[in-house]
C-alpha cells in the first residue's frame, strides 16, 4: 500500500501482468489492469492508500492470456472495461476474496506449453541473455527459426528481444546490487562497449547507466 503519493518506474521484463488496483478510501471501486509483454519502461502514478495485487505470468504463458491477440499485445496496457473485454471473468468476481491461483484459472486459457521453450527460457536466463541464438536452439533441439516461432507464439516477443531484456536486467543488477563500475558492467553484461550498453538502457529503461532514476521497480525475473 502506498503511504504517500508518488511515481514509480516499472521496468519491462517481457512478461504480462494481471493487476487489480483499488484505493482503501473506495474499496468497492476496482480497476483491473492487464499488461502485454513489456519492452518499454512505464511510469505508475499512485495516491495515498492505493493498493494493488496481481499476477506476473511466466513469459511463455502470455499466449494463454492474450490468445489470438498476442501479436498486437506487446507494450499494450488494458485498463477497466478493456481488461474485462479480454478476460470477462474479471467483471463478475469479488477480487478481494479471490485467491491468486483462482485468478490465474479464470484468466488463462488452458496452457499448451512447449517444454523446449521452457528449457530455452531457463538457459537464456542462466546465460544472462548472452548465449547465441544458434547455441540456444541447439539446447532446445530445434532450429533457430523454429525457436523464434516458439518465442513469438508464446511470449509475444522474438528470441533476440527477450534475450536483450534479460541482458539489460542482469547488467542493471550488476550496477545496482553488485556495485560493479559501469565500464566493467558493460563488459561482463556482454555489451560490445559502453555506447552499446547505453543504447540498451535507453531503449528498455529510458535512462542512461550513469544516471539511474531513484525509484526503480526491479522485477525479480522468474520469481513466482
Amino acid at each position: 500500500m502506498a503511504d504517500a503519493p508518488g511515481q514509480s518506474i516499472v521496468l519491462p521484463d517481457g512478461r504480462c501482468d494481471i493487476i487489480i488496483r483499488r484505493n482503501r478510501n473506495a474499496p468497492d471501486v476496482l480497476m483491473p489492469v492487464i499488461t502485454g509483454p513489456a519492452t518499454r519502461a512505464y511510469t505508475v502514478t499512485y495516491d495515498v492508500g492505493d493498493t494493488w495485487f496481481g499476477l506476473r505470468l511466466r513469459p511463455e504463458s502470455a499466449v494463454a492470456l492474450w490468445r489470438g491477440d498476442l501479436e498486437h499485445a506487446v507494450d499494450t496496457v488494458l485498463r477497466g472495461q478493456d481488461a474485462i473485454d479480454l478476460v470477462p471473468a474479471l467483471a463478475t468476481h469479488q477480487y478481494c476474496d479471490l485467491m491468486l491461483d483462482r485468478l490465474a484459472g479464470l484468466a488463462l486459457a488452458a496452457p499448451f506449453i512447449d517444454t523446449r521453450l521452457t528449457h530455452a527460457l531457463d538457459i537464456l536466463h542462466a546465460s544472462g541473455g548472452r548465449i547465441r541464438v544458434a547455441q540456444l536452439a541447439r539446447f532446445a533441439a530445434c532450429s533457430p527459426r523454429h525457436l523464434n516461432r516458439l518465442f513469438r507464439g508464446h511470449t509475444g516477443l522474438g528470441t533476440k528481444t527477450y534475450a536483450q531484456l534479460v541482458q539489460f536486467h542482469r547488467t542493471l543488477n550488476l550496477i545496482t546490487r553488485g556495485r560493479v563500475p559501469i565500464t566493467d558492467a558493460a563488459l561482463e553484461g556482454g555489451y560490445a562497449d559502453h555506447a552499446h550498453m547505453t543504447r540498451a538502457f535507453r531503449r528498455f529503461g529510458g535512462f542512461v547507466p550513469s544516471k539511474l532514476p531513484p525509484r526503480l521497480t526491479l522485477p525479480q525475473l522468474f520469481a513466482q
Binding site: D122, I123, H125, A126, S127, G128, G129, R130, I131, Q135, F139, R170, N173, L174, R177, G178, E188, G189, G190, L221, F222
Partner: peptide, 14 residues
Amino acid sequence: GNEAAEMNGLAILP
C-alpha cells in the same frame, strides 16, 4: 542449479 546462477548475478553457459 542453473537457476542459482541468475540469483547470484552470474551469467553462465550451461
